[in-house]
Nucleic acid binder design. Structure first.
Lengths: 225, 225
DNA sequence: GTCTATATAGCGATAGAC
DNA sequence: GTCTATCGCTATATAGAC
């Protein structure tokens, strides 16, 4: 059961209601600062200052630093992926073109600054918050791969590709798109991919993938066994 | 110019020489603790205690925490990879078998606890130490891929595989072997690959890779153009 | 050169005034 | 409910005794 941002009001209205705007300001500050500097790099004072509230107000809305970190990261993960942005178009005439477009979008998403920051945060606290990493993986990478999987499944049915295991192939394709650069970005290596290099990489991946999955007997849509 | 562990003695022998054994003890403690708990998770007190020396002795041997962290991580990276352990055997008769063995070794290495800990450390301090990450990538992943690259180049020459760009193909193969599990381990997801799943994964990768690179006209060793 | 003891600063979390 | 001021703790880094 994922945590929620909404405060739980046990008593209908015992006194003056807490200011939702302040809670939101704290929440926004956490979502901004934690990805930038990591768990240990952000103090509760810094969050309070960024939000423009006092530290006690902060503690009145959130139990402790861990809780705030948890819901902040979770929120960043969820707002990370607008799932429809990655739905592959209905154009399946040219399989390579569709995969090329998909690859560019995929890389833009998983190698974007926001995504990389989430990975870094989670890596830093890996020994502590394995549940948080699990959540991230479900709402992040898992959902990102899904459109690839669906596409491959349909490509297999229509005979454009030979994909007996769409789940596994989608994961392979995802790994190929990420390549070595994804990990390099996470650990903060200096060099960056130029747009030309990125394009060459995507082409290379699509070449390899299509070559591995193109039907062996082009005239036959499906082969028995 | 990488840092060295050896102390620089500016004066030949001004007084009592510092105890090299204590320096080594501190060094060993740092190499043990930093990978386990990360930069912020390890205090100088903890290192001194682990090494069995006082904190001032520590500071007399190393300028500050950053310097100690730097040379410790660098040392862990370098001792990480005995390059000969990954040299592929001379048996190139069955290409799939060689790749299967290579894949298992490769995964054992890059998904091992030590390697993953290095990734986590670097990710946590990514905004600060990009040079350190660069060093790691050169002495780590880069060297690990090299044997794959050499093997693919020879396989291409002997006509067993069709690998026009061994560098790129080796990187792709590496990405496939790592798969999603490598990243999942870095961020500390809970589930782990069972040996059976690992084996299935490697087989799947080798299937895909061989299928993509097997010569199209089996009888002809090389194709022109 | 090495140790015990300490200075200084920052952390997360809290008590009391309004 | 919110703020100012502070507790208790731990961090890095250092001064004085041997």
């Amino acid at each position: 059961m994922p945590l929620s941002v909404a405060p739980k009001k046990r008593h209908p209205r015992p006194g003056r209601p807490k200011d939702p705007a302040k809670r939101e300001a704290i929440f926004e500050a956490a979502k901004k600062l934690f990805p930038e500097h990591g768990y240990d790099g952000v103090s509760m004072d810094a969050i309070a200052a960024e939000a423009g509230v006092s530290k006690l107000t902060l503690y009145s809305h959130f139990k402790d630093k861990d809780e705030l970190f948890l819901i902040a990261v979770e929120a960043v993960c969820k707002q990370q992926l607008p799932p429809e942005v990655f739905e592959l178009g209905p154009d399946r005439s040219c399989i390579r073109e569709v995969l090329l477009r998909a690859g560019r979008r995929f890389i833009d998403l998983v190698a974007g600054e926001n995504t990389i920051q989430v990975y870094r945060m989670l890596a830093a606290r890996a020994p502590n918050n394995s549940e948080l990493s699990d959540i991230f993986f479900e709402v992040g990478p898992r959902l990102t791969i899904k459109p690839l999987e669906n596409f491959l499944r349909e490509a297999d049915k229509s005979g454009l590709l030979d994909v007996p295991d769409p789940v596994q192939s989608a994961e392979h394709l995802s790994s190929l798109f990420k390549g070595a650069w994804h990990t390099r970005r996470i650990i903060g290596c200096s060099g960056q991919l130029s747009p030309e290099e990125m394009d060459a990489h995507v082409r290379s991946v699509v070449d390899l993938f299509v070559r591995a999955h193109e039907p062996r007997y082009p005239s036959a849509g499906q082969s028995s066994q």
